[in-house]
Structure formats: structure tokens, C-alpha cells
Design a protein around this nucleic acid. Structure first.
Lengths: 223, 223
DNA sequence: GTCTATAGTCGGATAGAC
DNA sequence: GTCTATCCGACTATAGAC
């Protein structure tokens, strides 16, 4: 490929990526309807007409942003998911090993949901779609939520000796995830209640420790 | 007061209330920016100009809707809050009694957050403000969140013999609330994962039972 | 207290130059 | 691939009749 062509392509790819970065922030803050194409283009330092050029329309950019979130989070969670899948499939998953994997599950999601810097807009984006499914809901559900829940359910099933798709296991998987999620969905309120400025360092560790303890107690009470 | 005057006032009050009802639904679904005054007026079957007349502007209606949510939820939670406050102040709050009150706390909030019909728009409204505080945040925080968290913290403090404002207690109070909240914030996803159509009857009872069990195990593990 | 009419602004999308 | 210019519809808020 000639150098000139490659440079042109790269310039286009950069503009495309700047639009997605801007979309995450702007859609995250104002929602689909609240965000205007002018805000998006300004934030990306791109021309207004580049949005229909690269993404067909505003909704196309919205879906591209959702897919970007899915890809980025999958990179953080997939190593653990694959490890757990393998352990579950091997059918030799002991109680202690499963509990240890559950601890890692908690750690990974506390890291991603509570600790990850710059994930505020990702979280807003996802929670909006959860509360009011729109064009990007299916992308997020299929790409993230389903596997996240099923992985936790499989671990609980191994520990509590119940089928992974039974209602009590599904519910309990959600109560575990909910203990982490609240520090994201109610982040500002929780920080204020605790008198903290952010969830960093020791605060993050405390949250992790408490939730790990809770999880231990929840699954051990069911012996 | 002459009958004629009263009738006029009532008609005005009715219009005002219809606007607030519409505001809860429309703002809940589309957010502040996504909702248009035309949608609001149409839904309320009121004239467009009644919005600035009664609430000064769109933001005024938004805040009035927030205050309405606070008032309605307080009516559902205050009886329990007052009972708990009294028990805590009496300084004779035993472990068993505190645990029983904690069960009632779970039941009330599962009822309000998960089971309450027509609360979808209330929840959307509140979660939006949580994620991106706007004009109504202070109304919701002072009116609902603060007391909800503090009440749970006081009960945990009585059971675990720690100060109510210590970080571990505050965190644990949030992990308990988070177990309930997820069934609201991720309602659609959870229903889909469980293969349910709604959270009614036996499903609601199962959620309540699992969370109660979890709470028992969490606080009893800390002996 | 409610209505119509309208002013003034901002929205998404497109056409066509470069 | 990026830009300017522009169309046209939708928006909030107000003025003034009833």
C-alpha cells in the first residue's frame, strides 16, 4: 500500500476514533436524545458532517460507542471468564477452588466498575440502556451482561451444589453483582455518605474486602 | 371561601397535578433534556403555556416531580424509619430485635424498589440524577438517600457493635442496599436472565427470601 | 386559568465545493 | 476525507386575547 494512501486512511481512522471517544463522554453525560451532533463533533474536534459520513447517522455513532465499550471491558474480563469456564467444564471444580475464583470475580468487577479511571461515561452509557433499552441494548446485553451473570451463576452452582440455571442461584448471582454495582450506580451518593473524595487506594481495598467477606459468608451459610 | 373560587383553585390544582404525573413518566423515560415541553403538555392533556405558568419553566416542573417522588416514598418508608430511630435511641436495642428490624428494612425496600407498580418512572428519574446530578439531586439526596443509608447503618452498628459512621459499616450498608437496588437498576436484564415476565408474586418472595438470608449470613458471620 | 400565535433558537441531515 | 452553507423541522418561552 502506498504511503500516501495509508496516511489518508489513518487520518480517517483517527477521526473515527475521536468521534467514538467523544460519543462515550457526551452520550454518557446527556443520553442519546440529550446529546446533540454539534456537541459530539465539537468534543471530537471533527466536522459535523463526519458523523453521517462514518456512522450513517447519530444512532450509528451511538451503537459504535456501545460496541467499543463491550470490546474494552471484554479485554479486562475475558481472561478470568475463560479460566472459570475451563474450571467449570473440567467438572473437577472443588469448593475451595470455586470460592477462590469467586473472589477473583469480585476483584475484577470491583476494579472495572468501581476503580477503573475514565469509566464514568461507560457506566452512564450502560446504565441508561439498562433502564431504557434503545438501539444499543442488545449489543451490551449479549456482549457483557449475559456472560457476566452466567459465570457467577456457574461458580455459585459449583459451591452450593445446585443447578446454575435455578432461580435461587440466578437471584444470588445478582445479589452478589449488586453489591459491587451500587458503588458505580450510586457512586456520588456513596462517596458523599462516606465523606470520601473518590474510590481510590485504601477505600477501594476496603470495598473489596467487605464484599469478599460478604460473599464468603453468603456461600458458607448455605452448607 | 366562595364556592366559585374553590372550584377555580381545584381546577388549577388538578392541572398542576396532571403535569407532575406526566413529568414523572416523561422525564423518567427521556431525561431532562430528552423530554420536550410539548410531550409533557400532551401527556398531561394541558396547554403548553401551563408549564411556565405553574412551575416557572421546564426545570421547575422537573424539581416539582422530584419533590413528589420524595413525598410519596417517604410515606412508605417513614413508619419503619421512625420505629427504627426510636429503637436505636432507646439504647436497649438487642441483637435479635435489630436483626428483625433489618429484615423489615429489606422487605420495605424490596417492596418499594422491586415490587411497587408504576414506580418504573420514579426509579428512572432517581437513577438519572444519581449518575448525573442536576437540579433535583439535592432534593432526592436530602429527602431519601441520606436517611435510607443512615438507618441501615444504625441497625448494622447495633448488631456488629461498631460505630454507625465507621467506614466498614457504611460500606456494608451499601452492599445490603445494592443487593436490592440491582433488581431495579437492571430490572430488564435480570428478568431476561431469569426468564421471567415481571417481578410479581412468588418471584418477589424469592428475591426477598434470598436477600434476607444473605443479610442474616453477613451479619452472623461477623460475631 | 387557559388558550393561540409567534418570536427566536437549536436540532439532524444533506449537497456540493475543495 | 473534510469542509461550508443551508434546509427544515422541533424546541422553549413569551405576549396577549379570552
Amino acid at each position: 500500500m502506498p504511503v500516501a494512501t495509508k496516511q489518508i486512511n489513518d487520518r480517517g481512522e483517527e477521526t473515527r476514533q475521536r468521534l467514538i471517544d467523544a460519543a462515550l463522554e457526551i452520550f454518557g453525560e446527556y443520553g442519546f436524545q440529550g446529546a446533540s451532533t454539534r456537541m459530539l463533533a465539537d468534543k471530537a474536534e471533527a466536522n459535523l458532517a463526519t458523523i453521517p459520513y462514518y456512522f450513517k447517522n447519530k444512532a450509528g455513532l451511538y451503537c459504535a460507542a456501545a460496541q467499543y465499550i463491550v470490546d474494552r471491558i471484554q479485554k479486562l474480563t475475558n481472561p478470568l471468564f475463560e479460566k472459570i469456564d475451563e474450571a467449570v467444564k473440567s467438572e473437577q471444580l472443588g469448593r475451595q477452588e470455586a470460592l477462590q475464583l469467586l473472589h477473583q470475580y469480585v476483584d475484577v468487577f470491583v476494579g472495572v466498575l468501581v476503580g477503573l479511571k475514565g469509566a464514568d461515561s461507560w457506566a452512564s452509557f450502560m446504565m441508561r440502556e439498562q433502564m431504557h433499552p434503545g438501539a444499543a441494548y442488545e449489543i451490551l446485553y449479549q456482549g457483557l451482561m449475559r456472560r457476566t451473570n452466567e459465570t457467577c451463576a456457574h461458580l455459585l452452582a459449583a459451591i452450593l451444589h445446585e443447578p446454575a440455571d435455578s432461580a435461587p442461584i440466578r437471584i444470588r448471582a445478582n445479589t452478589i453483582f449488586g453489591q459491587i454495582l451500587i458503588f458505580r450506580t450510586s457512586r456520588i451518593g456513596v462517596l458523599r455518605l462516606c465523606g470520601w473524595k473518590d474510590f481510590s487506594g485504601e477505600h477501594l481495598e476496603m470495598i473489596q474486602t467487605v464484599i469478599r467477606e460478604n460473599v464468603d459468608r453468603i456461600v458458607n451459610g448455605g452448607i
